[in-house]
Design a protein around this nucleic acid. Structure first.
Lengths: 341, 341
DNA sequence: CGAGAAAGGTAAAACGGTTGCACACCGGGG
DNA sequence: CCCCGGTGTGCAACCGTTTTACCTTTCTCG
C-alpha cells in the first residue's frame, strides 16, 4: 500500500468483480463475458496496475527471467555476444539477469546458485572455461541439479559440460578458425608460426591450438613447442611476451597467430619497437575481428557474435527447441598484416 | 516439490521446530538458544536449503536486485562501465538485471516499467540520453513514480533528470574533457579544429560541444559552425563524413576533435586514404580512451570508467548515501596524433 | 515461595497472486 | 415441467516466506 502499487484486489474492487475473474482475464485463461472483460481492463488501465511477478512466481508460473553468466566483459566479442543475447531476451518480453564470474570457480558457482534460487527459466553460460577436473565435477553436479528443477541450461561459445545429458548449445568453430588462419599463413609461404595462445587450460586455447597444430601437420609447417606461448587475453601480456622473445635474439618465426586481437595488437607494438615491420618482416593474424582490427588493418578470424547471441537467446527462450545444438562457421578476414614470403 | 527444492517447512520438520524459528535463525533476528540454532543449521545443510527469494520479496524484504539500463553495449567505455557495475553489485551479494534500450524511448520505458514491476531496489541509468522534451517529460513522470514506491534511481555518466528532486548520480566531466582536449590542440598552434560530435540532441554531444567552444573562445581558436559536424557514434559514419569533406576540397582545418575513439579511427582512415598524414598534416584527438586507442597511438581523453561504475554500484546499494552526487575528472592522454604547428 | 520478567518458541495472519471446485444462471430437448 | 449441459463467476486453499501477537517455561529477586 505504502508503495503506491495497486494490487489485484484493488482492481477487482474497482471493477466490481472477484479477484479470480481479474486474474483469469489477465492471463487469458478461460474466456469470460466480453462485458466483464471490458470492465476489468478499464480498471486495470485506470489504476495502472501491473501484476507482481514475485507473487506470480510463487505459484510456478515461470519468472520471465533468463540468466546470463560470463567470465568477464572485457572485449568486443563478448560484448556483442552479451548485447545480442540481451536484445533477444528483451524482444521476447523477458528480463535478463547478468553475472560475471571473473574466471573464478567459486564466484561462478555462487552466482549460478543465486540465479538458480531465483527460479530463472534458463541459464546461459557464455564464453571460455577453465578446464580443471574440479570445474568439470562441480559444473556437472550443478547441471544435474538444474535439470532436476526444470531450469534449462544453454551453453554459448563454450564447450559442453561432460555429463550424460546433452545440454542445448551454440558454438562456433574454434578449431576450424585456427586451422584456416594457420593455413592462410602457410599458403603465403610461412613455415614457422608463433602461436600466442590464451592461458593454458582454457577451453578456447585448447581448441584453437588443436586447429593450429593440425594445419601445421597437414600442410607442412614447423611443429615446435618453443613456438607456442600463452599470454593472458590482453594487450599488455601479448606485448610483454613478444618483447621478451625479441629481446632474447632475432625472431625464429616469420608469422604470428594470436588467439585474440588484443594480443595481436600487443605483439605488433612489440615488433614495431624492435624495429620489425608488419607484414614485411613478420606477418600477424588475430582472432575475433574486434572492431579495432579494421583500424590496424589486421587480418583476423571473424566470429559471428551477434548470430551466436541471438541463437543462444532463442534456445533459452524455447522450452523445447527443435535443434538444440548448432556450430556456426568462422572465416578469415584478409587485411594487410600478412605478406607473401 | 516436484522441482526438488526443499521449503522452509521441510527444514522445520527435520529440525523439529516451527517454521517461525527457522526463519528467525536464518535471518539473524534475535538469537535463539544455541542448541536450537545448531539443529536448524544442520537441517539446512543437509537439505541444501535456500530460501525462495520471491516469497521473501513478497513480504517486502527487498529483492536483492539492482537494475541496469543502457542504450547499447557497443563500445569499450560502456562495457567497462557495465562490467564494473556488475562486479560491484555482485560483490554485495546482489543480482544485476540488465536491459538495453537501443536509444528508443518506448523500449526504454517498457524495460524500465518491467524492472520497476520486479521491485528492484535501485535502477541505474547509464549513458547518453536523447534530449527531447518528450523524453524529459516521460522520464520525469517515471522518476516520480519510482520515488513514490521507494525505488532508488541512480544516474551514471548521464545528465540529471530535471524534476524537483535531485537523484543520486555519478558523472564525469564532459565539458572539462572537451575543453582540455581542445586546449591541447590550441596550445600546439592549431586554430581551426574540426569537431566530430556525437548525434545532435544527445546530452553528451551538447556538453562536449560546450567545452570545445569555450576553449576556442578562451584561447583564441576559430569558432566556425562549418567546423562542427555530427556523425553517429561509430567508425563508419566518422569515416564517411570526413571522407565527404575531403572529397569536396582540401581541408580547412588542421586538427580534429572526435567525440569518441571509433569516430576518430574512422576519420584517420579517411585522412589516410586522402593522402594526408596524421599528425603531420592533420592532428587528431579522440575521446574515451578505448582500449584500441593505444594501438592507434591516438591522443585521447580518458574517462575513468571503472571508478564511475563502482561508484554507481555503491550508490545503488546504499539506501542513504552520504554523498549522492559526484563528478569525476577526465584527462588528456597524450600519444602521437597531435603535432606542433 | 510467589510474582514478574526474560527467554524461547509457536500459531496464525499477512504478502499478492493462481486455480480446483462449487454454484448460479440460462436455454433447450424429452 | 424437469433435467441437462454449458457458461460465467466466486469461494477458499495454496505458493513459501516474514512478522505479529501470544503462550510457555525458566530465572531472578524480594
Amino acid at each position: 500500500m505504502s508503495d503506491g502499487r495497486p494490487s489485484i484486489r484493488d482492481v477487482a474492487a474497482r471493477a466490481g468483480v472477484s479477484v479470480t475473474t481479474v486474474s483469469r482475464i489477465l492471463n487469458g485463461s478461460y474466456p469470460p463475458a466480453p462485458k466483464t472483460r471490458d470492465k476489468v481492463l478499464r480498471a486495470v488501465q485506470e489504476l495502472d496496475y501491473v501484476a507482481n511477478p514475485h507473487a506470480r512466481a510463487l505459484t510456478r508460473q515461470g519468472t520471465g527471467t533468463i540468466a546470463l553468466v560470463v567470465m568477464m566483459l572485457d572485449d568486443g566479442f563478448l560484448m556483442s555476444l552479451v548485447e545480442s543475447i540481451a536484445t533477444g531476451v528483451a524482444e521476447a518480453g523477458k528480463l535478463c539477469l547478468i553475472g560475471t564470474s571473473g574466471g573464478n570457480l567459486e564466484r561462478e558457482l555462487a552466482v549460478l546458485r543465486q540465479m538458480h534460487a531465483q527460479h530463472v527459466e534458463a541459464i546461459i553460460l557464455v564464453g571460455a572455461v577453465v578446464e580443471s577436473d574440479e570445474y568439470r565435477e562441480q559444473m556437472g553436479a550443478f547441471a544435474a541439479q538444474l535439470r532436476q528443477s526444470g531450469t534449462r541450461l544453454v551453453l554459448c561459445a563454450r564447450p559442453p559440460i561432460d555429463t550424460g545429458f546433452q545440454d542445448a548449445s551454440v558454438e562456433y568453430d574454434n578449431e576450424g578458425g585456427a586451422y584456416a588462419a594457420t593455413s592462410h599463413l602457410l599458403s603465403r609461404g610461412h613455415r614457422r608460426i608463433l602461436l600466442l595462445g590464451g592461458p593454458d587450460g582454457q577451453s578456447i586455447t585448447t581448441r584453437r591450438t588443436t586447429g593450429y597444430r593440425k594445419a601445421l601437420r597437414d600442410l607442412g609447417g614447423d611443429l615446435d613447442p618453443d613456438l607456442e606461448i600463452h599470454p593472458a587475453w590482453n594487450r599488455e601480456t601479448g606485448y610483454a611476451r613478444v618483447r621478451e622473445l625479441l629481446d632474447a635474439g632475432p625472431p625464429t618465426f616469420t608469422g604470428i597467430l594470436a588467439h585474440n586481437d588484443h594480443v595481436a595488437a600487443g605483439a605488433m607494438q612489440a615488433l614495431r619497437e624492435a624495429g620489425l615491420r608488419v607484414p614485411d618482416d613478420v606477418s600477424v593474424v588475430g582472432f575475433n575481428n574486434d572492431s579495432f582490427a579494421a583500424d590496424l588493418q589486421l587480418t583476423t578470424v571473424h566470429i559471428p557474435a551477434r548470430e551466436l547471441g541471438l541463437r543462444a537467446a532463442a534456445l533459452a527462450l524455447d522450452p523445447n527447441p527443435t535443434e538444440n545444438h548448432t556450430t556456426l562457421g568462422t572465416h578469415v578476414i584478409v587485411r594487410e598484416t600478412v605478406a607473401q614470403l
